[in-house]
Amino acid sequence: MLRRFKEAPVRLLLEYAVRAWAEVLPDLVKAGNNTALNAAIKAFAFSILVCETQRKIPMATALEAYSVALRSVNDSLKIPNKSSLVQLMAAVMCLLFAELVLPTSLESWTAHLEGLGELMQTREPQFYASGIAHRLFVGARPALIVLKIQSRKASFLASEEWQTAPFQEIIPSPMQALMNEATAIPGIIERMSQEAGITTADRLLTELEALLDRLALWETSFQATPEAPRFWYDGDCIWFDSLTTANGLTHCWAFNVICLTCVGKIVGLFPDLRPFAHISRGMVSQETRRMSMLICRSTKYLMQDKMKLFGPTSIVLPLQTAYDTLKAGGAETERDFACCKEILESALGEKHFLSLFFKGDV
């Protein structure tokens, strides 16, 4: 198996990895021998094989490969010009996925992701407008936005130049268009925790109303494109026409829930403020509950074995959002929360790496 990997390391990855960033690995490998990138690809591949049944390898082997890759990437970061920026970005992204399978910690995963964001900012946004750099950018951006939402910190990706310059040559996909809207969420959450006063609260409500309108427009446009429905019910579960659709809609629902939760908190602090003309306080609660259950019922589709790493990793933010929202609902959402908790416990049992994100919650 090791000989086969050495002969065709990227082909082994592409059997599983369908994300845009993974598809550039062959070009990066052909561009020149790079120790850090090669070691990171190997660690990524071995972490995948840990989960395989036919070609399974010992965890110790995967951990050793990961340790070698980590040292190699650290060495490259210390020595200027040892690796190109795109090679380093790809190496870090390989390590990110390896982290999801290996028994490390959430702190390590977030540290890699924070480092990736710092690496990206060493170049101007225009650098990511085309070629391999663009593919890596669009592959990394969703994870970076999710990280900032979870850490409640504003992201550099929210600035206008970072939303427009990387897409001046290539039109953003529907998922990337959705992420353009989501870049505003971390900053809103951060300001809610730092600022006080009815004037600021009213301003935040206005921003949230505009953002919710844009999210609704995105969902309407996204679902109106195909002739067949984007999703349908199979019993209590929701099935989708593709993994891309599942990713887009579950994240759109999660972003809606987060925004509506922010609305509820602001109105709770300032009762004299009304939400929006078309959304009453009661509707805020109803909509967060409805969309949270849509997310929960989508989990079975995304947890299918054929999704490999990409289905389960994409459900992390939506499922965490739904879980926290239904838990906070108290008696009003008790039955829905019990259902969500059962789904989450099942997911944790099937994909052990999800415990990194939900450790101690269930």
Rank of each mutant, 00 (worst) to 15 (best):
M1A: 11
M1E: 11
K6H: 09
A8P: 00
A8E: 13
V10D: 05
V10L: 08
L13G: 12
L14D: 03
R19A: 13
A20N: 06
A20I: 09
W21N: 08
W21H: 13
E23V: 09
V24H: 01
P26H: 14
L28Q: 04
L28Y: 01
T35E: 14
L37E: 07
N38G: 01
I41L: 15
A43M: 00
F46W: 08
F46I: 00
E52T: 11
P58I: 13
L63P: 02
E64F: 10
R71P: 00
D75Q: 15
L77I: 14
P80A: 12
K82Q: 14
S83L: 04
L85F: 03
V86M: 02
Q87D: 14
L88I: 01
M89T: 12
V92M: 10
M93T: 12
C94K: 03
V101T: 11
V101C: 06
T104K: 15
E107G: 07
H112T: 00
L113W: 01
L113G: 09
G115P: 04
G115K: 02
G115V: 04
G117N: 09
M120H: 04
F127Q: 01
A133F: 09
H134A: 12
R141I: 02
P142W: 00
L147E: 09
K148A: 15
I149D: 00
R152Q: 12
A154Q: 13
S155Y: 05
L157D: 07
A158Y: 00
E160V: 11
E160K: 12
W162C: 11
P166I: 10
Q176K: 02
M179E: 14
M179C: 09
E181H: 11
E181Q: 08
R191Y: 01
S193G: 03
Q194E: 12
G197C: 05
I198M: 11
D202C: 12
R203G: 09
L204H: 03
T206A: 15
E207A: 09
A210N: 07
L211F: 04
L215V: 04
L217R: 12
E219K: 13
P226K: 10
R230A: 15
Y233I: 06
G235M: 08
D236Y: 08
I238A: 04
T244G: 12
A246Q: 05
N247S: 13
G248A: 15
L249C: 07
W253M: 11
F255W: 10
C259W: 00
T261W: 03
C262I: 04
C262P: 00
V263E: 03
V263G: 00
V263P: 00
G264S: 14
I266T: 12
L269W: 06
F270V: 06
R274P: 01
R274S: 15
F276L: 02
M283S: 12
E287D: 08
E287G: 01
R289G: 03
M293E: 09
L294R: 13
R297M: 04
S298M: 09
K300W: 07
Q304S: 12
K308R: 07
P312N: 03
P318L: 09
Q320C: 04
T321F: 02
T321S: 08
T321Q: 04
Y323Q: 03
K327I: 02
E332L: 09
E334T: 03
R335I: 15
D336P: 00
D336E: 15
I343M: 14
L344K: 06
S346M: 15
S346K: 13
K351S: 08
H352S: 14
H352E: 10
H352F: 10
L354N: 11
K359M: 05
